[in-house]
């Protein structure tokens, strides 16, 4: 595995596995993070995976103790990371999970569905068909709790961000920005074109793993009616209380 190590401040190391966004690099990142999850070395506080990097936040005092103050914490962290990455061989990444997300498209949940259709010379039904028919994968989670950066959307429904961002986008709204699609897990301001809403929670602060989606997951959207949306939402609430 080829990579470089660089410091992020005085308590973190950035492992860089490439300089462009690709499925190949994503696979390597998932391989490493799966290993980190399994081994969970005590000197690692946590890690943040992104498109081409994994940043490891470490305990400087513990590292100094572990190496008997022979070297500074960063140097020792790099040595441990080198050792760790050497033991990861092959590319037997686990099969990705497939998460199906129901979406109620258009109406008050998707006020920009018509705009997206107009920009692309399509009907709203065609936009829904294309969006729900896509084969998506989650590159990383960031920006907001549980917010997925999803790749794989068809260029035929791409739409630029709104000129004026909305101050409040309700939680669980599905949007499009450029070539990307995503779901807002919590109420946030934002400039995406809003095309629908899902009744299921992406951010689950009471669960052991607070995010429905993880980096590396495959995602499929499927359309549901407003009645079905309300049923899902009621079921969710029952489960949560």
């Amino acid at each position: 595995m080829e990579y470089t190590l660089q410091p992020l401040g005085d308590q973190a190391v950035i492992i860089e596995l490439g300089d462009e966004i690709s499925n190949d690099i994503q696979k390597k990142i998932h391989l490493v993070t799966a290993y980190l999850d399994a081994e969970a070395p005590s000197w690692i506080i946590e890690y943040i995976p992104a498109f081409t990097t994994i940043t490891i936040f470490y305990e400087p005092v513990m590292l100094a103790r572990l190496c008997n103050h022979q070297v500074l914490p960063y140097e020792y962290a790099c040595k441990l990371i080198d050792d760790l990455l050497k033991t990861i061989t092959g590319n037997k990444a686990a099969e990705p999970r497939v998460i199906k997300i129901p979406v109620c498209y258009g109406g008050e949940f998707g006020p920009d569905l018509e705009t997206v259709a107009k920009i692309n010379g399509l009907t709203t039904d065609e936009v829904i068909h294309i969006h729900a028919g896509g084969d998506y994968s989650v590159f990383m989670i960031g920006f907001a709790p549980g917010f997925p950066f999803i790749g794989g959307m068809s260029e035929s429904i791409a739409a630029p961000r709104r000129d004026t961002p909305r101050l409040k986008i309700p939680a669980r709204t599905v949007g499009i920005a450029g070539m990307q699609t995503g779901v807002y897990p919590i109420e946030t301001p934002g400039g995406w074109q809003l095309i629908g809403r899902t009744p299921i929670e992406l951010f689950r602060p009471d669960d052991e793993i607070p995010s429905l989606l993880h980096a590396g997951d495959k995602v499929q959207f499927f359309p549901i009616s407003l009645e079905e949306y309300k049923e899902w939402e009621n079921d969710n609430n029952d489960n949560h209380h």
Binding site: I48, P205, S211
Partner: peptide, 10 residues
């Protein structure tokens, strides 16, 4: 709150 930044939790 550490250990959850990978899920976007600050």
């Amino acid at each position: 709150r550490y250990g959850f930044q990978k899920y976007g939790v600050i």
